[in-house]
């Protein structure tokens, strides 16, 4: 009788853990997909007609607002996500997030973006597949900014693995003191390592190669 009770408890615990994995890998993605739809509606620059009122300046955005669109052809031709402003849990559950203290695209300095690699739509699922030379395209109200990676995991699942505290990767000039005056426009992407955990981080970074102002 008592043993049966313990057995039932253990079985129940096992089922709950399994459901939790289902939640993390699939359930979180449903919420993200619907958030992405809402965010896309906030972006008015894909519409043909411009009302001439450029009130959607990047500086006026609040945390959680739609920031722009990121495209990385390495992840697929139709891989496209709406970036949100901010990198708190509540921002990142809706899509890739812009480090609010980092530069805007095209500016001298470092445009930092973080995104999930498992769950929440897993935007950066294939992150280790990023190679040096890959293109990262960012579209905002101000234009289309194309970056080319000069430092990436290059197919190594442990490539560009860093510690959680390695904030230098999103500094204006990565590797230099954060007060260093930047002389080039960079992009830096961060995600978790390992994929199904977060004891460490991974990054990839590159420089601006093309700008199409709006």
């Amino acid at each position: 009788m008592f043993v049966g009770f313990i057995g039932e408890l253990l079985l129940t615990a096992g089922v709950i853990v399994l459901l939790f994995v289902v939640y993390l890998l699939w359930g979180t993605g449903l919420q993200t997909a619907s958030a992405q739809d809402d965010l896309r509606e906030q972006l008015d620059f894909d519409q043909e007609q411009s009302d001439g009122d450029s009130s959607s300046s990047l500086q006026d955005l609040e945390l959680g607002d739609a920031y722009g669109i990121i495209r990385i052809p390495r992840f697929g031709d139709d891989w496209e996500w709406v970036i949100v402003e901010g990198v708190e849990d509540d921002d990142l559950r809706n899509g890739p997030g812009h480090y609010p203290d980092s530069a805007d695209p095209g500016e001298l300095g470092n445009f930092g973006v973080a995104a999930h690699r498992a769950g929440h739509g897993e935007p950066f699922a294939d992150f280790p597949e990023l190679h040096v030379g890959d293109i990262v395209e960012v579209e905002t109200a101000e234009g289309v900014f194309t970056y080319r990676l000069d430092d990436a995991p290059d197919g190594d699942s442990d490539g560009n693995k860093i510690n959680i505290s390695d904030t230098w990767v999103v500094d204006p000039v990565p590797g230099e003191p954060s007060s260093t005056e930047p002389d080039e426009a960079r992009v830096t992407l961060t995600t978790c390592w390992p994929r199904l955990g977060s004891s460490h981080r991974m990054y990839a970074t590159g420089t601006l190669i093309d700008v199409e102002e709006r």
Partner: peptide, 17 residues
């Protein structure tokens, strides 16, 4: 419960800080 557990366990962090 699961959203709370995910946040509390901190198993899905992707930012440097």
């Amino acid at each position: 419960i699961f959203p709370w557990a995910e946040e509390t366990l901190g198993i899905t962090q992707v930012t440097v800080d």
